[in-house]
Amino acid sequence: MAAVSASLEVRALSVGYGPVRALRAISVEVPAGAVVAVLGGNGAGKSTLLRAISRTLPFHRGAVSAGTVAFDGRPLDGMSPAQVVAAGVVQVPEGRQVFARMSVADNLRAGALGARGGRKEGAAALARVHELFPVLADRARQRAGLLSGGEQQMLALGRALMARPKLLLLDEPSLGLAPMMAARIAATITEINSRGTSVLLVEQNAALALRLASSAYVLDVGEVALSGPADVLAASDEVRRRYLGVVDETAAADVPRARTEAPALSRWPA
């Protein structure tokens, strides 16, 4: 059964950790049914953005100082993390964070706690997870900590899907994975999205993220430096140089022509 997606709107959001300002009046939108990527270097504020949306900032001693977050037309401000999950927004944290001493099956059951729907919906969600990740069915009784890194990422995704999300917040899903496993996780994200679940993808692998997304934002020291369609950003000399590791000497030497021919990207006003 396809998920019912809904749009996310982040408006002029500022976040701090004590005296340290991590985000400065950023605005991000995830249309219903879309995959939107957030790129940027370490310390750019990518994970902080996801924590602000999922309302888990207090666990990291952070706080929203200004701005709003709304999902499906409902403000998430003031909600608890459990209420955000019940509203259909589920985060897969960086580093997978599975319950290592619990079995695979119990990890998946934990993901269903507080989810929308009843037993029938829960059984359908489990069947969907096992369809996407057959290895989780095969190793249902095994301790999660004994799985490989790639299998743990599958489990983290599966646990999130048990909550029947309308929007998935993915924080570095390819981190630490071999290229073949990263490609498999990417294909799974595409499959999840094709069934109607919106995705906000934070990813340092910019090439992978821009292939998956329809649009993207580039964060730089807590601010939106660039935003636009993913294919336009992928063709941007600045993005190619800073995030894709591509040095195009011809394009660099022909700046006037590049400026006239390349599609315009939106920059955040100062």
Rank of each mutant, 00 (worst) to 15 (best):
T250N: 10
V246P: 06
G43D: 06
A252R: 13
Q91M: 15
A156L: 05
G33A: 08
G114Y: 05
D231H: 11
G16C: 13
A270T: 07
A12E: 15
V84P: 06
L175Q: 13
L147K: 06
Q97D: 11
G62Y: 03
R211Q: 13
R116N: 05
P269T: 07
G145R: 07
S214L: 09
S65V: 12
G18T: 02
L136F: 13
L175I: 07
G245T: 03
G245I: 01
G40E: 08
P93L: 10
L50Q: 00
E261Q: 15
A2F: 12
R139F: 13
S148H: 03
H130V: 04
G111V: 00
A163Q: 05
A87W: 07
E249G: 00
M1P: 10
G176I: 09
G118I: 07
P19H: 09
L136A: 08
R195P: 01
P256L: 12
P75C: 12
L219Q: 04
A127H: 06
L212I: 01
S80W: 04
Q97G: 05
I192M: 09
V35C: 12
R24F: 10
G78P: 04
L175W: 03
P81C: 05
R164C: 13
M79H: 08
G16Q: 14
E203S: 05
A37F: 02
L168I: 03
Q83L: 08
A25I: 01
L161G: 07
L146D: 13
P19M: 07
L113M: 14
A144N: 05
V218C: 09
A258N: 08
G117F: 14
P179G: 11
R24P: 02
D106T: 07
R119F: 12
V36C: 14
P165L: 11
A115R: 15
I189A: 10
A234I: 04
V84W: 03
N107Y: 10
V104F: 08
A182F: 05
A127L: 12
K166L: 10
A124S: 08
G158E: 06
G149R: 01
A123I: 10
L113H: 09
L210K: 02
L8Y: 02
V36M: 11
R51Q: 10
P173W: 10
G150F: 07
E203I: 09
M1D: 11
G176Q: 04
R11M: 08
G228C: 08
A125E: 11
G114M: 13
A32S: 15
D237L: 15
I26K: 01
A70P: 02
M102W: 06
Q97E: 14
T68E: 15
G111M: 13
L49Q: 04
D248E: 09
V98G: 02
V15G: 05
A270P: 00
L8Q: 03
A22W: 00
V64L: 11
G67M: 11
L57P: 01
L226V: 07
V89C: 14
